[in-house]
Design a protein around this nucleic acid. Structure first.
Lengths: 204, 204
DNA sequence: TTTCTGAAGTGATCATTGATCACATTATCA
DNA sequence: TGATAATGTGATCAATGATCACTTCAGAAA
């Protein structure tokens, strides 16, 4: 990881970034509850109190992780979206696949993003990152009464619902155990939303 | 709460139940993170260690809360379901409304139910309670490839997705701030699923 | 170059918490 | 009436989040 600059200079030089990386991996592997500021400090080779020079408290550390997660998801969605035709239904399917893939492959990180109790929803960086997502799928957001609004919200809800139910093991009996299979079945279910989209005036 | 039987008998007599009630209210009001075994003990008027006579650890305490929550939700759904016509679409709408109402009115409790990291998913009592829910909406569960399976899963996913996104403040810009309004808009969106149900062969 | 100032890291310390242990008390039932 | 197991107590431990006064050092100012 950190290349062995064996001589430890009093000042670390890259502490904030490394703390973030380490915490992200802890969250991803063991969940947010397993995060410990002290452990992170030790892992990076620094005194426990040093953490507080870069993050006012534990919540800020986790918030930074959540922001990074939102960025990663938004990146994945944009990447997948760009190499698909701009037909709306196809776009939606592509975005949905990226969303579900992210949730299935990095469940702990995905869950953290929506844990309003553990993160600071007012944080600037967090708002920016999570904002990227809100504008991505629900490009035509706004009034849920309008067809466009209803479509974007319903679409997001289905995808988000499938993803969360799956990773919270509420669909274990209905879904294959194998991860790849699971992903395939879930994304295939997105297509069933076709009729809704057609009814609300979305072109294929 | 506990009526003032001022003479404290060495044995409490109802500890487990009262600990559960107290913890449920803490979860509901402040979230699972705010739960403290010691605080609960003090609130009920007992030594910290007494808690461990009834719950092996904190996780077990939270798991019991989650089980209770599942029971309450299942009760609410069954109640609402019974006084609606047995036409499938109407049933689904009724169940969805109950589901969303529960989530909106008791968000912290609702969230706890799906927090696999904090609760013990193997717990017998928890499995029984959460099982009630799985059979309730997805009465025709099973293969997601079959129309019945797809309908039940999709339906649950939409409702669950709408509920979680709403309480995790991801729809604040799209939804009214007022709780009752919010509930109305969300449940009204369920109807948009009509076309999917029709296509998959569900009668109105 | 030298000086000085603020950012970054340290070690000590505190209160709180989850958990365990030996012990005390009492409900239950043989 | 006793014995026994269930239930509650108080002491105690290790870990954690957080704060404080103190050091170290990098970079701007002189």
């Amino acid at each position: 990881m950190t290349d062995k600059k064996s001589k430890k200079s009093y000042h670390h030089g890259n502490l904030r970034a490394e703390l973030l990386v380490h915490t992200l991996s802890v969250v991803e592997n063991e969940g947010p509850e397993a995060v410990s500021g002290r452990a992170a400090a030790k892992a990076v080779g620094v005194a426990p109190a040093a953490v507080y020079r870069h993050f006012p408290d534990k919540r800020a550390l986790l918030t930074a992780c959540a922001a990074s997660a939102f960025d990663q998801l938004a990146d994945a969605i944009e990447a997948r979206k760009s190499d698909s035709q701009p037909q709306e239904m196809a776009q939606f399917r592509a975005e949905g696949e990226a969303y579900i893939a992210f949730a299935l492959h990095r469940p702990n990180l995905f869950r953290l993003m929506f844990r309003g109790d553990v993160i600071d929803g007012e944080d600037e960086e967090f708002l920016r990152a999570s904002g990227r997502l809100q504008t991505a799928p629900g490009n035509g957001m706004g009034d849920p009464g309008s067809p466009e609004g209803a479509v974007s919200i319903l679409g997001w809800a289905v995808v988000h619902g499938l993803a969360t139910l799956a990773i919270d093991s509420q669909l274990d009996r209905e879904l294959p155990a194998n991860l790849v299979e699971r992903e395939r079945v879930l994304t295939s279910m997105i297509s069933h939303m076709g009729p809704v989209f057609r009814t609300l005036g979305v072109k294929d």
